[in-house]
Amino acid sequence: MTSVQDPSLTVPTPRAREPRGSVGLARNLGLVIALVILCVVGVVTAGDRFASTDNLITILRLATVTGIIAVGMTFVITGGGIDLSVGALVALSSVWATTTGTQAMADDIGWVAMVFSAVLVGTVCGAINGLLVAYGRVVPFIATLAMLASARGLAEVIADRKTQIIRNQGFTDFFGAEPLGIPVIVIIFALVTMAGWFLLNRTTFGRRTFAVGGNPEAARLAGIKVQRHTAYLYTLLGTTCGIAAVMLMSRTTTGSSTHGTQLELDVIAAVVIGGTLLSGGRGTIVGTLLGVLIFMTLTNVFTLNNLSTSTQNVAKGVIIVIAVLLQQRIANRKP
């Protein structure tokens, strides 16, 4: 409560009893431990094949799509919402940005046209989600479920369920480049994460997000336009979906209505094990980043060790539970 009345607090959480700095650290400590254990397992089982720069970059490249959306999702969940449509938005954005029409436009005015249309489509769909949830008073679960179905359906209609190949050389060259050995898409992922961290922790927008998610009524009484802010959050997530679609387009050099299938589950799982409360009011970008990295490293270690899908899914489930339990243990310990 104090948080709402006193905007000078950097990270106001509704549970103001917890001293801030140590809890933030403790919250992430469980995740860091999990990640370190995974890395140790990786080094022990795969040795230099795991602990190499090439492999690190492989993990980061894989993480870009999920990671960028997870940053946006952290805002929505912290703000007390949920969005199930992210995978479908990636599909729709990638398809829209690779139609013959868009590609012809890209040939005329440059590949930026494709990036622009992907991000625009994502943003508009996110805004529709936001309007439905904030002003239409549709439960987020239902509103975004409807968006999931219709966005993927629309993607299938536009693409005629065919895979659309990107012919524009400028696009593939730019996003395929690796200045100083770091792929451009990884750099974009880093920039989005940093921007997300700044927005959530160092701006009024971020403080309002915590307030709206923690206690919307109190936020309203404190003069925050809760509905408008909620709409902004979903729009922001839509924008990150558009950016993620560009990353996936660069990796696959295609747009397809099958892109991003079940991506929402990976994203939400990463955000939640990152310590963001599903009920809203608490969330960290660093935790989300760690959550994404844990999943991607897990996948990588399994691939390196030649292990099957089914085992991997079991391990994923176990890791989610262990990480959350660890967090609770550490965060609940009284200082």
């Binding site: 492999n55 492989t58 993990i59 490249r61 894989l62 799509v65 996936l248 990796r251 696959t252 397809s256 099958t258 892109h259 299938t261 079940q262 991506l263 996948t299 990588n300 399994f302 691939t303 390196l304 292990l307 099957s308 899908t309 991997q312």
Partner: peptide, 15 residues
């Protein structure tokens, strides 16, 4: 791992 996620399949080939 068998996968229908092209992003993941690409990373497998990268590995």
């Amino acid at each position: 791992e068998g996968t229908n996620d092209v992003n993941l399949q690409i990373s497998q080939v990268e590995t």
